[in-house]
């Protein structure tokens, strides 16, 4: 066979061998990268599940404490109040006892009110007949009654909004955390909360007229909690221009 045939065969064979090696190389790397990607995705999913479980267990623990406070402490205090009242009715002529009665009643009433507040705050879903709107209105009314700051809440439709328990609780916690931050850090006088509903999603715009948040502001525990809760319900959020107060928009699927 002539040398040129050897050369042609050699060149073609080397070319094909090289091509095959490269294709194998690419396929092998793709497989490895795919496996790495799957591993990372599984890890992220695991972290999400862990976070969800942590938040859920935290909520159930709060709920348990709230119910215990409501059912045990509250009930017992009411019973104690009744006992003292009965005791006084039997000893009306003694003025010192009357005075004792008044004092005890005032203290116990105070304890009952505080216990109720604590239990409602710990577990806002204790009363399942409450809708999301009622919860928000209730909470905001409480803040408005203090007179230090005003909260305006608007829903763009009148029908009763019904979210899942997870979404309701997560959004309730987010809103309370936002309001808490505004009160603590922004010197704001007015908070505006607007809820609007689209096709398959709901948007909440939170605005205050305070000092706003610095662009280089580091995320604190509160903001991290907000992020975690929003992540848990698949919500996205966007902090808008902060030059005239804090302005946050949250959108979540319904």
């Amino acid at each position: 066979m002539s040398i040129y045939l050897y050369i042609i065969l050699g060149m073609t064979a080397t070319f094909l061998l090289c091509l095959a090696t490269i294709l194998f190389y690419i396929k092998y790397r793709k497989n490895i990268l795919k496996k790495q990607y799957e591993l990372k995705t599984a890890e992220v999913q695991y972290q999400k599940n862990l976070l969800k479980a942590t938040i859920n267990s935290q909520e159930s623990e709060r709920k348990r404490i709230g119910m215990d406070l409501h059912d045990e402490v509250g009930a017992n205090l009411s019973y104690l109040r009744l006992l003292i009242e009965n005791f006084v009715e039997k000893n009306e002529e003694i003025s010192a006892v009357n005075q004792f009665n008044e004092q005890c009643r005032a203290i116990i009433d105070n304890i009952i009110t505080n216990t109720r507040n604590i239990s409602h705050n710990l577990s806002p879903l204790l009363n399942k007949s409450y809708g999301f709107q009622d919860m928000i209105y209730d909470y905001c009314d409480g803040i408005n009654s203090s007179g230090k700051i005003a909260i305006q809440v608007t829903f763009d439709q009148d029908k009763i909004v019904k979210f899942s328990d997870t979404v309701t609780l997560a959004m309730y916690r987010v809103i309370t955390e936002l309001i808490n931050n505004t009160i603590k850090h922004s010197s704001a006088k007015l908070i505006t909360l607007c809820f609007s509903f689209g096709d398959g999603f709901c948007t909440m715009d939170y605005m205050d007229d305070g000092t706003g948040m610095a662009p280089d502001h580091k995320k604190g525990m509160g903001l991290q909690n907000i992020e975690s809760r929003l992540g848990m319900i698949g919500a996205s959020y966007h902090i808008k221009d902060n030059s005239s107060g804090f302005n946050l928009s949250v959108t979540w699927p319904v």
Binding site: T14, C18, L19
Partner: peptide, 12 residues
């Protein structure tokens, strides 16, 4: 691809 295929040609 180019240099491996053509090495044999360059050599001979």
């Amino acid at each position: 691809l180019y240099f491996s295929s053509c090495s044999i040609l360059f050599g001979l």
